[in-house]
Simulated assay, not measured.
Amino acid sequence: MGAYLRNNVFMFSLMFFAMIGLLNAQVADIKAICGKAKNQSFCTNYMKFNPKTSGADLPTLAKMTFDSAQTSASGALTNIQSLAKKETNPALKKGYTSCEEQYKNSVSNLNEAKQNLASRDGPGLNIKVSAAMEGATTCQDSFANLKADPSVAKNNSDFQNICGIVLVISNMM
Score class of each variant (00 low, 15 high):
residue 5 L to S: 06
residue 6 R to G: 01
residue 7 N to Q: 14
residue 8 N to I: 13
residue 9 V to S: 10
residue 10 F to R: 11
residue 12 F to V: 03
residue 12 F to Q: 08
residue 13 S to E: 09
residue 14 L to R: 14
residue 17 F to K: 06
residue 18 A to W: 11
residue 19 M to Q: 13
residue 20 I to D: 04
residue 20 I to F: 04
residue 21 G to R: 14
residue 22 L to R: 12
residue 22 L to I: 13
residue 28 A to N: 06
residue 29 D to E: 08
residue 29 D to R: 09
residue 30 I to A: 03
residue 30 I to N: 05
residue 30 I to K: 06
residue 31 K to E: 13
residue 32 A to W: 05
residue 32 A to T: 14
residue 32 A to Q: 14
residue 33 I to N: 14
residue 33 I to S: 12
residue 34 C to N: 10
residue 36 K to E: 14
residue 37 A to F: 06
residue 37 A to N: 07
residue 38 K to R: 06
residue 38 K to P: 05
residue 39 N to S: 11
residue 39 N to G: 09
residue 42 F to I: 04
residue 42 F to L: 03
residue 43 C to V: 03
residue 50 N to T: 05
residue 52 K to H: 03
residue 53 T to P: 04
residue 55 G to K: 08
residue 55 G to M: 08
residue 56 A to V: 14
residue 58 L to D: 04
residue 59 P to V: 10
residue 59 P to K: 06
residue 61 L to D: 03
residue 61 L to R: 03
residue 67 D to L: 02
residue 67 D to C: 02
residue 67 D to Q: 00
residue 68 S to L: 06
residue 70 Q to H: 15
residue 70 Q to M: 15
residue 73 A to R: 13
residue 73 A to D: 04
residue 74 S to M: 14
residue 76 A to M: 00
residue 77 L to N: 00
residue 77 L to R: 07
residue 83 L to R: 07
residue 83 L to W: 14
residue 84 A to N: 10
residue 84 A to F: 09
residue 85 K to A: 15
residue 85 K to P: 10
residue 86 K to T: 05
residue 87 E to T: 06
residue 87 E to S: 12
residue 88 T to M: 15
residue 89 N to K: 04
residue 94 K to M: 07
residue 94 K to A: 07
residue 94 K to S: 10
residue 95 G to N: 09
residue 97 T to F: 09
residue 99 C to A: 06
residue 99 C to I: 01
residue 99 C to K: 03
residue 99 C to E: 06
residue 100 E to L: 09
residue 100 E to C: 12
residue 101 E to C: 06
residue 103 Y to I: 14
residue 103 Y to C: 05
residue 104 K to N: 05
residue 104 K to H: 05
residue 104 K to D: 01
residue 104 K to V: 01
residue 106 S to A: 15
residue 107 V to R: 13
residue 109 N to D: 08
residue 110 L to W: 11
residue 111 N to C: 05
residue 112 E to A: 13
residue 113 A to M: 01
residue 116 N to F: 07
residue 116 N to S: 10
residue 118 A to T: 02
residue 118 A to G: 13
residue 120 R to Q: 11
residue 121 D to T: 00
residue 122 G to R: 01
residue 122 G to V: 02
residue 122 G to H: 02
residue 124 G to Q: 04
residue 124 G to S: 03
residue 125 L to A: 10
residue 126 N to P: 02
residue 126 N to L: 07
residue 127 I to K: 05
residue 128 K to Y: 00
residue 132 A to V: 08
residue 134 E to F: 12
residue 135 G to L: 14
residue 135 G to S: 08
residue 135 G to Y: 13
residue 137 T to D: 04
residue 137 T to A: 15
residue 140 Q to M: 11
residue 140 Q to F: 04
residue 141 D to V: 12
residue 143 F to G: 10
residue 146 L to K: 11
residue 148 A to C: 02
residue 150 P to V: 09
residue 150 P to C: 04
residue 151 S to C: 04
residue 156 N to I: 01
residue 157 S to T: 15
residue 157 S to R: 09
residue 158 D to R: 01
residue 160 Q to T: 10
residue 161 N to E: 12
residue 162 I to F: 08
residue 163 C to D: 02
residue 164 G to N: 14
residue 164 G to S: 07
residue 167 L to M: 02
residue 168 V to R: 01
residue 168 V to Y: 00
residue 168 V to I: 00
residue 169 I to M: 05
residue 170 S to N: 00
residue 172 M to W: 05
residue 172 M to D: 08
residue 172 M to C: 06
residue 173 M to G: 04
residue 173 M to C: 02
